[in-house]
Amino acid sequence: MSTLLIIKIVIILVVFGITLLIAMYSTYLERKVAAVMQDRIGPDRAGPWGLLQPLADAGKMFFKEDFIPKQSEKWLFIFGPGIAMFTACMTGAIIPWGGTVTMFGETFNLQIADIDIGILYIMGFVSIGVYGIMIGGWASNNKYSLYGAVRASSQMISYELAMGLAILAVVMTTGSLSLKDIVEAQKGGQWNVFYQPLAFLLFIVCAFAECNRAPFDMAECETELIGGYHTEYSSMKLGFFLFAEYINMFISSAVISVLFFGGYNFPFMYDLGLSANAITFIGVGVFFAKIIFFIFFFMWVRWTLPRFRYDQLMHLGWKSLIPLAILNLMITGGWQIFKDSF
């Protein structure tokens, strides 16, 4: 038992470290992707190919003046970024990073906790994440921040609905809420995206909205709200908000890969004649490749599309995505009954 405990602690630390590392280098990747898509080079001064840029940015953030406006609610102002960061880090706990490993006489999953309501847990934490933005925006006591916060909360609440309905279709085909079961059900190239393309499309659109990413970055939109909910923030508090966004993006990419692209599964994984441990480790690599692809995809979309107008966003959410999600749910349900009755 005690070895298992140690192993779990190690996994927790590694997952936490990797989450932060990937979020850190997402900022670098974001700038590089933006640059190459605009025919520029991007950061290349700090270290080889500019690889130390995230460290330089973090250093800059730390040494900036940490300013708390006098008319703000001091404690809530400090709480906001804390909540955003905390909820962002918590969601990584139930992602199945890899299959089972047999080592040190123990067999264990590369997952921090396989709770059987995995998806609900993620949805729950994502919706708590809204509070970080809402509290931060409200506590700033500034018109623009408040607008940003209000926009963010209404946007997230509307898109959570469609997101939940899209996930429900996947849950119906798998018959389980546990992420582990969902991944196991997609063994050998039977990825959900082939069976549930509409749900995938709905989910990814909602994921963009949930992460506050362009084209749905209503909460920040530099041009209209001069930064939205984080207008008043500076130094590492601002850093936390921005960093939380990148962690959310990483987790979203992981969830997309798990739900629709088979997680750590890869085609022909059992035809290669490798040992179980080797397959697991290749699987982890494949999983991260998928995640990084989706992170790139997020950025790709950001640097392609202009921002939606707010009414368009609400239109899309309530009048297109939710009806489509319900339709998808009905079709899935009908198919399920049809399949079972034969």
């Binding site: 190459v36 605009q38 025919d39 080079i41 790709w300 640097w303 392609t304 599309l305």
Partner: peptide
């Protein structure tokens, strides 16, 4: 339109840099 746009930005990755 979105896919068309994304194709355009993808092409720009391989263009000559103006920097």
């Amino acid at each position: 339109a979105i896919i068309g746009g994304m194709f355009i930005t993808f092409k720009h990755i391989f263009k000559k840099k103006a920097t």
